[in-house]
Design a protein around this nucleic acid. Structure first.
Length: 832
RNA sequence: GCGAGAGUGGCGGAACUGGUAGACGCACUAGACUUAGGAUCUAGCCCGCAUUAGCGGAUGGGGGUUCGAGUCCCCCCUCUCGCACCA
């Protein structure tokens, strides 16, 4: 072996061997237990960054450890290859998005290989490949057929910079998730997927994912935003129209004193027409529509529309207002206003001088008086001034009033969701074409299955303006109607790229299949993903879409349902959301100039050091603060192990010495340390996902024997054997973290099989037994002494030994012992 | 405002079910080896007082439960993230 640790030579050697022997390729093999380990696939932006290094190292540790555990481990990689940066590159430097993407993939593939990640490269896929997206086009047609995909004109989020529509999930703080420019509203014909039809199932699934971080589940539940209540109908005075409102508080119907409509509500214009309010309403609507969403959120403006409706329960005449805070997109775009029991209505009523009526009176409180109330009362209580419902607890009132509304045909129970259908049309080139054509005679016509895939043309021109490049390609746009044979035009929008990332993890199970999207047997064997790892930024976007897609593909019959009876199908059993890599307090980014290039790290220290640092510096879910010295420390540790093995190589590799009848204390102690470390590391990796403490435990082990490794073996044969075991265990336990250097050293110590094939060790319970444990003596809760005793010492004896301790004696001298407590194996507690 | 999470040495972080607070690493200090070392090895390293044993204090602040609290309960403060007029 080399005397000096040369990471490059070592890493090249092992990477070449793994590639040559296809070490990490796997087959679907139902005779073996499986483990599907997946990291969120990268966008081929050009080069990998530290976030990738961290994400993929965590995944690789899991994958390699589970392999050693005997699992058949699927650990694939691919490329989320459609998307805007490719198109922007085309606009900026004239590179074709396809070429730009291909070159980036080639480079990043090399980078990942240099990190030593144990992927099954035979399963690599890229979403821009027609052999991939053709299946997506087919899924879409199937959804279309079942009404799960539909087209409608709608107000959409428009990013002017990206020249495209954004999904609700892609609007952050009123800004584009990608480029941060303000999002505008536009009215466009768009394709939607009916994710709202799956709202309840998606919600139910949240309760069946114990392996997910609570934080992510909470975000998903909030995003779906289910609320239950009633839809009530308010007839408009003097017209046939009816205003439908959604309310979660049907119990307060007797307190409704006005009704508010969104400015976009069709009745606003209709009702005000011809009244004295018409001009005021027109002006107000124009003003509100011109406001940005933030401006709109500022105030609680409104105007009387000049008409009245009728409270369906009291028959009372209620004025109708147009109000800025009512959202057309939620519920029916209309609200029944109960000032005394809703804070917004309260404020609105105060400014517009609208009457207020208390209908819920809290128990054990003085009667509420609208004249002196400073805020709406939104808590529980009993109904008052509510006719036949008086005296009911308000929760019961909800049910009773809803039932009554149904009986009188003025309303019904209703559920609302915050979740909107997923708009999937994008006015961009670099995406999967939406497989429909428009025919003047036949309308919207799906492209027949046998004509799939609709290929993305390669000869588009990228100017960055004038809309989608596809729309300007006559040869693409112009086609014939599959139904009538007449002239027709192709859809020129492409799919949102989240369409591709919503099912890639399924395709990995049979990526080369040209006859079907998925091989059911492979899906049944591999799914669900046992461990999914990625950034929290996908908590709602990708992770919600992927869950939705899985359920929809089940319903389309594309995949078998792998879920247990009574549970909903879920793609990812366990989710680990890793934190960001930050430097100088900020996320690494080009614009901040605080980027550390993984290539530089690998060049200077080697991949193993980069891997070790990114694992050791912080627990995975927390942010990792970059530290140059921390990297040095990781490198130093690997060098240290190298030196230790090198020093003892003449005897560390020798065969097992005969164990003596009565091993020395030193030998026994080291064995105990070795096996305790096995327990800790196994638990940290398999159960806790605390990889940083797993590494720390191995460091402690190394500290426990390092100085005993000299050029020749110690005289004590049992100790020599204990050291051999400790050194080998070090390499085995570290193998998932730093696979190259440990593989190399494994050869040095005479490992006969490749380290990656060595079974993960089990601790020997006998070795864990301690000859004696250290006991602590507390006096009034403070540690005053300690002694060693065999673990099976009786409580009385422990107490006697505690009392005999000199320092304890000093503390209790002249005092009365009022209470004693013995916790065997831990401590003796005295109260004086 | 609502929801989730977090506040522990100079720093990253340990302490999983209440039981020796600060593992492991970084930085720092001293020493050894050295022509030299940012290499390596040895020792020290929460704070204060004593410095040889010891004593007192300390996990954002304040209360509480307990023989015993970083850990459990209540109140408050700060930070991070998410959602924010959702009727």
């Amino acid at each position: 072996m080399e005397h000096r640790y040369d990471p490059h030579a070592v890493e090249q050697r092992w990477q070449a061997r793994w590639a040559e022997q296809r070490t990490h390729e796997v087959q679907t093999d139902p005779s073996r237990p499986k483990f599907y380990c997946l990291e969120m696939f990268p966008y081929p932006s050009g080069r990998i960054h530290m976030g990738h290094v961290r994400n993929y190292t965590i995944g690789d540790v899991v994958a390699r450890q589970r392999r050693m555990r005997g699992f058949n481990v699927l650990h694939p990689i691919g490329w989320d290859a459609f998307g805007m940066p490719a198109e922007n590159a085309a606009i900026e430097r004239g590179a074709h998005p396809a070429d730009w993407t291909r070159e980036n993939i080639a480079y990043m593939r090399e980078q990942l290989a240099r990190m030593g990640f144990s992927y099954d490269w035979s399963r690599e896929l890229a979403t821009c490949d027609p052999t991939y997206y053709r299946w997506e086009q087919r899924f879409f047609l199937a959804m279309l057929e079942r009404g799960l995909a539909y087209r409608r004109k709608s107000i959409v989020n428009w990013c002017d910079r990206c020249q495209t529509v954004l999904a609700n999930e892609q609007v952050e703080d009123g800004k584009c998730w990608r480029c941060d420019s303000p999002v505008l509203e536009r009215e466009l014909e768009q394709w939607f997927l009916r994710i709202t039809a799956y709202a309840d199932e998606l919600l139910a699934g949240c309760d069946q994912l114990p392996g997910w971080p609570e934080k992510v589940l909470v975000m998903q539940r909030n995003w779906i935003g289910r609320s239950t209540g009633a839809e009530l109908r308010f007839p408009v005075e003097g017209r046939d129209d009816v205003i439908r409102v959604f309310t979660t508080r049907p119990d307060t119907i007797f307190g409704a004193t006005f009704v508010s409509l969104a400015v976009e509500h069709p009745l606003v214009a209709a009702l005000s027409r011809g009244t004295s309010q018409e001009s005021a309403v027109t002006a107000f609507v124009a003003k509100v529509k011109a406001q940005t969403p933030e401006e709109r959120a500022e105030g609680k403006d409104g105007v009387f529309v000049g008409a009245y409706c009728q409270n369906p329960f009291t028959g009372e005449r209620l004025p109708i207002y147009a109000a800025s805070f009512v959202l057309m997109a939620y519920g029916a775009g209309a609200v029944m206003a109960v000032p005394c029991h809703d804070q917004r209505d309260f404020e609105f009523a105060r400014t517009h001088d609208i009457p207020m009526r208390v209908v819920v009176q809290p128990d054990d409180a003085p009667p509420l008086d609208p004249a002196v109330m400073e805020a709406a009362y939104e808590g529980p209580g009993r109904l008052i001034a509510s006719g036949e419902f008086d005296g009911l607890p308000n929760e019961e009132g909800k049910a009773r009033i809803t039932a009554a509304a149904e009986q009188r045909d003025v309303g019904r129970a209703a559920t609302q969701y915050r979740l909107r259908d997923w708009g999937v049309s994008r006015q961009r080139y670099w995406g999967a074409p939406i497989p429909v054509v428009y025919c003047d005679a036949c309308g919207v016509v799906p492209v027949p299955l046998e004509q799939l895939p609709v290929l993305l043309p390669t000869d588009a021109v990228f100017s960055g303006s004038g809309g989608s490049p596809l729309a300007r390609l006559e040869h693409f746009v112009r086609t014939t109607c599959p139904k009538c044979g007449g002239p027709a035009r192709r859809e020129t929008d492409t799919f949102d790229t989240f369409m591709e990332s919503s099912w890639y993890f399924l395709r990995y199970t049979s990526p080369q299949d040209t006859t079907q999207a998925f091989d059911p047997a492979a899906i049944r064997y591999w799914l669900p993903v046992d461990q999914y790892i990625g950034g929290v930024e996908h908590a709602v976007l990708h992770l919600l879409y992927a869950r939705f897609y899985t359920k929809i593909l089940r319903d389309l019959g594309e995949i078998p349902d792998w879920s247990e009876p009574g549970r909903t199908i879920e793609p990812f059993a366990n989710l680990l959301t890793q934190g960001m890599v930050i430097k100088d307090g900020a996320k690494m980014s080009k614009s901040k100039g605080n980027v550390v290039d993984p290539d530089y790290l690998v060049q200077r220290y080697g991949a193993d050091t980069a891997r070790l640092f990114s694992i050791f510096a912080a627990p995975p879910e927390r942010d990792l603060e970059w530290s140059d010295q921390g990297v040095e420390g990781a490198s130093r540790f690997l060098n240290r192990i190298w030196r230790i093995i090198a020093r003892g190589q003449s005897w560390l590799g020798a065969g097992a010495a005969k164990a003596g009848d009565a091993p020395s204390d030193a030998a026994r102690a080291l064995r105990r340390l070795t096996h305790r470390t096995i327990v800790r590391v196994t638990d940290d990796v398999e159960r806790r996902s605390h990889f940083n403490t797993a590494v720390a435990a191995v460091m402690e082990l190394v500290n426990g024997y390092a100085d005993q490794v000299q050029e020749s073996a110690p005289e004590d044969g049992d100790l020599a054997e204990a050291i051999r075991e400790a050194a080998r265990t070090t390499l085995v336990l570290l193998a998932p973290f730093v696979p190259h250097v440990t593989s190399e050293l494994w050869e040095t110590v005479g490992g006969s099989t490749a380290l990656a094939e060595v079974p993960w060790p089990d601790a020997d319970p006998a070795a864990l037994v301690e000859a004696s444990v250290e006991m602590v003596v507390q006096v009034n809760g403070k540690v005053r002494g300690r002694f060693s005793a065999p673990p099976d010492t009786s409580e009385e004896e422990l107490l006697q030994r505690a009392l005999a301790d000199e320092r304890v004696q000093a503390q209790i001298a002249g005092k009365t012992i009022r209470k004693t407590l013995v916790v065997p194996g831990r401590l003796v507690s005295l109260v004086i």
